[in-house]
Amino acid sequence: MALETTTMKKDPILSVEHLSMRFGGLMAINDFSFEAYRGDITALIGPNGAGKTTVFNCITGFYKPTMGMITMKQKSGKEYLLERLPDFEITKQAKVARTFQNIRMFSGLTVLENLLVAQHNKLMKASGYTFLGLLGFPAYKQASKESIELARHWLERASLVDRADDPAGDLPYGAQRRLEIARAMCTGPELLCLDEPAAGLNPRESLALNELLQGIRGETGTSILLIEHDMSVVMEISDHVVVLEYGQKISDGNPDFVKNDPRVIAAYLGVEDEEVEEVIEEIEEIEGGQGGSKP
């Protein structure tokens, strides 16, 4: 019911339709569909091995899905079919940026340089694909100054500005997580995909992360899609939660709805053998109640 109220007024930025991904004999994702709405923080949760990261890799082009369609609709109304674009074009054209579960820093570059690398395409154009820049044209100098200002802005947001000239590999873990988010934001995305941004953070750090993410959304209007295990983060900041188990969607709605969904509870906590019947009945009841609106 909560689900219907949200779908009514929001327009989707990303719609995943009938997505399937097969690795040999393993069906990692099976006919999975969901929508992420513009300006929302959408969380994709599920037990370990449910296929969350695979969905992410399909969205960001690191895997080519076996079946299905992934549509990214930009503010301008332009639509991109992500499953047809090579991975770097997804960031460059479709404006979908991502971070990684195991942090991928350019550890030998400084924090500032990490953010400058993220502005590669913009700077390439400004430097006339290197040739004009090499000859010292002023357009590149200007663009280079602007890119440092943008980097400084995101460093301030991620409270990393004091470490700007240190190698990224020298930062503590929590700061590397924030840097990865700042770096992704420097590409100027409309949709930011975060793969377990709170993994390994202490409670204070994950609180700071919540603020950073909400700040990003509030300030730039960037929609966020995140995979997360830390329920304090998920329930606190997300507007919309999608639950995945064994490659299939088992629940979809606002955090309160998902929290009380018996299928989600069963997926996370497991059920005693005697209770299986009970749970199945309950589930059928819910599905009946939704009037077959769900697949």
Partner: peptide
């Protein structure tokens, strides 16, 4: 230049490069 930074970034992590829209 951006191309030089992209080379060094490529040495550090190729996958991260692609995730940032670098061809």
């Amino acid at each position: 230049m951006p191309i030089g930074r992209a080379w060094e970034a490529l040495r550090e992590d190729e996958i991260a490069c692609r995730s940032l829209g670098i061809n």
